[in-house]
Design a protein around this nucleic acid. Structure first.
Lengths: 214, 214
DNA sequence: TAACTACATTTTGTCGACAATATGTGGCAC
DNA sequence: GTGCCACATATTGTCGACAAAATGTAGTTA
């Protein structure tokens, strides 16, 4: 079922996770020889991994000089959320017309399970749940480019910021209601509203984060 | 001034252009050995070039099997324009607040030169002019991710479709007015309107293309 | 001391060869 | 003739070595 995974794939994922989770610090230099010993692979696969990370904007590279992990800045996070607002808004719009009834039903069920968690008391709205919710809508857009840009690129960067600026599960209480309204709009096949609500939802997230940073 | 360019860079660009301009046909297989003789470089640099093309979604790759140029489909073009509408809409919004007065003045001047061309008679609104207009607004957003996604990714794909489906300079007559209104909104620093107008502008383009395809 | 030059060192870029995997071909059983 | 298995072939994946470029260092001069 799973397509074969090469050493370059595994190294790419391992290196990416080490960076995103902060085990390799932001702004630090990535030495090819050093990494090749660390991950026990040849420089060729390290180079391929670094190239892919560059495509994700997780590392920056200068010819004949080398690669560095990107530096995190408040401005960078804001730019990231501007892109999210744009792309995920469109994703919600498309999801409202392209998701099947079954997929929408599943989404509603997911939302219900989140409601039970929130209602249940101390268990707050987990980040994983939030991510899962957004994933389904993005997938529901059925737009290959949208899906790839968000999953392969933006989301890892967003997580990198979250982890390294120490902000887990933001805005846990109000987000549920926003999710509910988005699902309702999709259920009504109201593309316009779904986009608007999703954009607001992400805008609020951005504002909340900006507040925490200042 | 210019950063050094490696053989991999040059090969990447050459290969990309050969694909985008249709000299390598859509859907065809890319043999590493074959290309390495054709471009007179080692397989390593070919592999790097192919990897980058994969990141641009210009080629698709299966592990242990190889890479193919993506196949063009009407659906694919529509998806591309959906992403463009989303991203360039946001770019216009951001440009309305982030462009300097000087940059806006330059944009107006560019528009004026287009007007002179259009007015001049037989010389229709060139594709290059259109692209230049959009470039400036995207750059004006000052958002690194937005700029990179559009310039490094989407635009080459759009051009690939245009070239290979044989549609140069679409909607040459009406596009000028739309551009004018967008610039006016940016001049007024009306972010909301700038986004809306840009989205409409791209939506019309999409509709026009869909009409030509059917 | 500051700045410039020449050299040594380190790091990245490129190459050819080998290993691992997938594809194509022929033969065999039924 | 059809389906399946084994083998030959071709292609991709990985590796270590060499070439080219940038950085760091020492020495010299003003």
């Amino acid at each position: 079922m799973n397509q074969p995974i090469t050493a370059a794939d595994k190294t790419f994922i391992a290196l990416r996770d080490d960076i995103v989770e902060g085990r390799i610090e932001a702004g630090s230099k990535l030495s090819e020889t050093e990494l090749s010993t660390k991950y026990a692979v040849s420089r060729a696969v390290i180079r391929e991994a670094i190239n892919r990370l560059e495509s994700c904007h997780i590392v920056e590279r200068k010819a004949n000089v080398g690669a560095r992990v990107v530096a995190l800045s408040p401005q960078g996070l804001i730019e990231l959320y501007q892109v999210r607002e744009s792309l995920e808004g469109m994703a919600a719009r498309l999801a409202a017309t392209n998701m099947t009834d079954d997929e929408i039903a599943d989404l509603s069920a997911l939302l219900q399970s989140h409601f039970n968690e929130v209602k249940g008391g101390e268990s707050y709205y987990q980040e994983a749940g939030d991510v899962d919710f957004h994933y389904r809508i993005i997938l529901g857009s059925k737009n290959k480019h949208l899906i790839s840009m968000l999953f392969d690129g933006i989301y890892h960067l967003v997580r990198m910021y979250r982890v390294q600026l120490g902000m887990a599960g933001p805005r846990v209480t109000t987000a549920y209601d926003e999710h509910k309204h988005i699902v309702q709009a999709i259920l009504n096949r109201d593309a316009e509203l779904a986009e608007m609500l999703m954009r607001r939802h992400i805008l609020y997230s951005k504002n909340s984060i900006e507040r925490k940073l200042s």
